[in-house]
Computed example of a mutant assay.
Amino acid sequence: MTLKAPKIGTSNAAEGDNNLLTINGSSSAPPTGSASANRSTYHTTLSTTLAKLDLNSENKYHDLRNEDLKDMQELGQGNGGSVKKVEHVPTGTIMAKKIVLIDAKPSVRKQILRELQIMHDCNSNYIISFYGAFISDPNICICMEYMDKGSLDGIYKKIGPIDIEVVGKVALAVLEGLTYLYDVHRIIHRDIKPSNILFNSKGQIKICDFGVSGELINSIADTFVGTSTYMSPERIQGAQYTVKSDVWSLGISLIELALGRFPFSDSSSDESDLSDFEGTLSPARPAPLPPMTRAQKDKKKKRKSRGVSLQGGGMTMSILELLQHIVNEPAPRLTPEGRFPKEAEDFVDSCLLKTPDERRTPKDLLKHAWIDHSRTATIDLEAWASTF
């Protein structure tokens, strides 16, 4: 296999294309000159954009100020900045505040404005709500809905494999969110993974992090972004990113939630029972390595976090080897066979078809039998949320 270098978009899409999401002031980098002049220009552009968003806003948080927010907890690091849990003191509302340094390269600056516009325009039960944003020099602070149960990545790592009925509700919510983004805004998410799917104690499931989202037809969509381990085979090979690439990432994510581990990795314990994992990877496993010496085993322990372990033994793949595996080998499956409903197995298989032309869109997958079942399933997600 040859891994092609991904295409890097070098030109902006034509102005006035009705299919594109356009943002005033973000079509070009600030003029060249001193760093302070650049920052001043960008600061002005950003302030204008924020003011316009505030004027158009119908929510009660449009007059957000840093002094009105009380830090409560560090939530982690996101794309391009940190995220904190804060309280908006005047209203008592708990929010998630994303802090982004605006002394960033031009591409990141445009990304910030694009993210603001996308979030401001989104109004869906399956997308994290946007409360507003403000400048706290040299940072921009973006305030979003706080999901108190955190990401599904953190949840399954705490409680283990997630019940397939809950996983079905996750699939439904993500498909609804992706369909909304694509149909209403003509954008694709491009970074679907369990850490970007959030859950709250009300039983709501929403997708977040538009830090790497882009306009569907814009050349930005040809840039190599997203989390490589969830990336579709065609994207790894440098082909154009489409909404069907998000479907692949969803399929990988659903297996991860149902099995309680990343589909291409092994349990962290060498002594663990691997029978449950049989058949998850393709039968054509990489050739077994010769027995390791004690020195090699010690070296492997030190290096393990740098690679992806495949079903025990001495097989630890580098990211490059994993990407080659994703392209060359049959896709992972929801296994062992018979543990999960046939409809769930079929749904995941349809997400993970290697040829994108054969893969269905999120809108088409909303008509799948398993999704129909999940839509009417009586599982109480609010009650489930109370168990952890």
Rank of each mutant, 00 (worst) to 15 (best):
L310F: 13
P362L: 08
A383S: 13
L352C: 11
T179K: 01
S249F: 09
S265K: 15
L366Q: 04
K158E: 14
I112T: 13
A37H: 12
G313M: 12
G78V: 05
E58R: 12
L178R: 00
S350E: 14
A284K: 12
K52M: 07
V108Y: 06
Y146I: 11
P336Y: 05
M95F: 09
S82R: 08
T22K: 13
L323H: 00
Y126A: 13
K193R: 08
I162K: 02
S269E: 14
A239N: 14
K158S: 14
S82C: 05
P263I: 09
N12E: 14
Y131W: 07
I207V: 10
G312A: 11
N59F: 02
Q237F: 00
V166H: 02
A5V: 14
G16V: 04
R303G: 01
L257W: 07
Q73G: 01
I118V: 15
R375W: 01
K300C: 01
I159C: 10
I118K: 08
G214D: 05
F130V: 07
T361D: 08
T32Q: 13
S28M: 10
L20V: 06
R339H: 07
F262Q: 11
R359E: 08
N18A: 13
K4P: 01
S136E: 12
N24V: 13
N139E: 11
H120A: 15
D270N: 14
R65T: 09
D153H: 12
K244T: 09
E321D: 06
A221N: 15
G25W: 07
K7G: 01
P291H: 09
G150R: 07
S350N: 12
I197W: 03
V170L: 03
T2C: 00
P362A: 10
E337R: 15
P286E: 01
G76V: 05
M72T: 02
F210V: 06
P106E: 09
K297Q: 11
A35L: 08
K300L: 14
K244F: 00
A331S: 15
W248M: 03
P291M: 08
K299N: 09
K363A: 12
V212K: 00
D68S: 09
D17W: 04
V327E: 00
E67R: 15
K193I: 07
L353D: 06
I94S: 06
T387Y: 00
K4L: 07
P161A: 13
A96V: 08
Y156N: 06
A369Y: 03
S228R: 15
N200T: 10
I142H: 06
A369H: 11
V225R: 01
M317C: 12
K299G: 04
D153E: 10
H373K: 15
A104T: 07
S228N: 12
I205R: 03
S228Q: 14
G9R: 15
F388A: 13
D121H: 05
Q240P: 03
K149E: 06
G177Y: 03
